[in-house]
Design a protein around this nucleic acid. Structure first.
Lengths: 194, 194
DNA sequence: AGCATAAATGAATAGGTATTCATTTGATAT
DNA sequence: ATATCAAATGAATACCTATTCATTTATGCT
């Protein structure tokens, strides 16, 4: 971060404030104070309050995609890849708590513009899962009678719900590794006893 | 519904308006218009805007729990119970679209009061799943090395994410039955090929 | 140093909407 | 019919906060 990169400073403040209060309850003045900047200054870097949220999505999910793709490319077995995805996703919740809260909440918000947005950038992130599944099916590692699209949803949903638990109740009994392990185990092998 | 049960009329209107616009973007006057009632009348039945949301939760999730318990009690095999849960949950999204949207969105909203609330009423709903799992484990139908709490989260999360897809994109390729079938299949048997 | 340009400030504005309450309307009983 | 009480109304209030913009402060150049 440069000597005084206001753009990033404001964005970091916004992550914190949106994460704590939610988009609608967050005041511009809260963000300004957190960023140690005047209210008006924010409008030199962003068009309006909503623009801060969109930019935040754009940039932070972008980083996330890059990171997770890099981690996955280290593995050759699609079963391991699923575990790695789970691990990274859950780590985010621990390491960037506020960002995770923002994504959790605002991803569900109503409003046409954000719905549209989800269809592009956020979808890219989740589609990493279906790519893994498809490749696994081609390699005969995964059952071919299940649609990758449904597995993708189910798997992401499982992780996301686990995140919600942690955000709500920060004292988690299980480690990130245990949880990632348990969830990928359930998906790979099922819960029925042999 | 009685000749003029304003309480329920307002609640139904709120479900519709909150579902369409989200809690924060919904105006009291929108709800009033939808309920065919004066703005002030709403305050004879509810303390404030937020109270409408809470009441809505209380009453609608209550109904949901009753319904789903009744359906599950018809079955004796825990594997079938899981399928039935999935089926009912997904049906909700089709049959009561607006309510599903409200639950989806507002469940993730920030704010202490709603977080506290979730810990009680909403938890009861999700705990139906862990009850099924625990019983299944006692009957040696399900693996005993997996924690019911984690399975519960994963299963609910999977269903919830599927709901989100449908809410966002109402033209679903799969029927409710197919989807409930696919998701319970994944959880019961896993995705790894034999 | 002196000038020009850019960046930052924060008090004032402007618009929105939850909530109130004086008044009207409707219902019930005598 | 009229008095009494409850229910409903909706315009006015009161508050809140995103955004603007005239002014101030910092930066860089000769």
């Amino acid at each position: 971060m440069k000597k005084s990169d206001k753009h990033q400073k404001i964005l970091n403040a916004a992550i914190k404030v949106f994460g704590q209060k939610g988009f609608f309850n967050a005041r511009i003045s809260d963000i300004a104070k957190e960023a140690d900047v005047a209210d008006g200054t924010i409008y030199l870097y962003f068009n309006n309050k909503y623009d801060i949220l969109l930019t935040l999505f754009e940039e932070e999910i972008g980083k996330l995609i890059t990171e997770i793709r890099a981690a996955i490319s280290q593995k050759s077995d699609q079963r391991e890849m699923l575990y790695i995805f789970a691990l990274h996703h859950l780590r985010l919740v621990i390491e960037k708590k506020e960002l995770a809260e923002v994504l959790q909440m605002e991803l569900r918000q109503s409003g046409e513009s954000i719905k549209e947005y989800r269809r592009t950038k956020f979808a890219d992130y989740v589609n990493i899962i279906s790519e893994i599944i498809r490749t696994g099916q081609e390699n005969n590692i995964f059952r071919r009678d299940l649609k990758p699209g449904i597995i993708k949803r189910a798997f992401f949903g499982a992780l996301d719900e686990m995140s919600r638990l942690w955000i709500l109740n920060p004292s988690h009994k299980y480690t990130v590794e245990e949880s990632a392990e348990a969830i990928s185990d359930i998906f790979l092998n099922g819960i029925v006893a042999d």
